[in-house]
Amino acid sequence: MSTIPADDTMPEGDDFVAAEYVLGVLPEQERRDAARRIENDPAFARLVANWQLHFDPLNEQFQSTTAPSYLKGQIDQRLFGIDSGRVAAGASFWNSLAFWRTVAVAALALVVFNFAREFVHRQTGPAPTQLIASMSSDSGPLRSVAIFDDKSRKLRITLVSGDIPRDKSLELWLIAGKDAPVSLGVLASPKGTEFNVPTSIAAKLRDGTTLAISVEPVGGSPSGTPTGAVVAAGSVSSI
């Protein structure tokens, strides 16, 4: 190993450039030159790899943070040209972002359709078996869609955009008329959460009932009523 030169002289050599590249301190042009050398100069590439091995242990200090759920769809779009290669790749149909986006658009169309139908008939047909709600807010990025199947009494909710905030939970509420909000539970994953809805609450799920999502402490509201901001809301309509 070389000796350290007098205090005011800058040590020179490829090994320092390699270290500087790994540390990331170089200005843009010098950094680009170094990156090119890694491709074309195996000896230099080895110096870089060696420094990287020395610094790798510091990587432990980068703290993991869940990326927003829509990013993977955008990556697939760029790589494979479709939003959800996920279906082809064997991932669940229900987790497909494209599917849920379609559902969100369909839900909006349905609201218009139902309005028109009501306007024409002013009467309801046989009891609906499927209900859908598209939830959003003017002030925030969160958009969510929930589908309720009357037969199985399962309500499935997914985030179409936005994400579950770090160190918080998102809680789903049912608000029927002037009744106090009833908690349906905490969202387990932005991709999809399924709730079993008790009969007594299922009876309140019908056209016009409001579903809302609030930000709560991890695990849900401690008091049984919403304590945090409502980040999305929407009303239920039958399919």
């Binding site: 980068f62 703290q63 993991s64 990326a67 990013l71 494979f80 996920r86 064997g90 991932a91």
Partner: peptide, 22 residues
Amino acid sequence: DRAAFDVLYNSTSAKLFGVCLR
């Protein structure tokens, strides 16, 4: 293998997102 890519993303994206954010 795209299925492998999905699994790789699911198991490593949080760490890499942490790097980008920092």
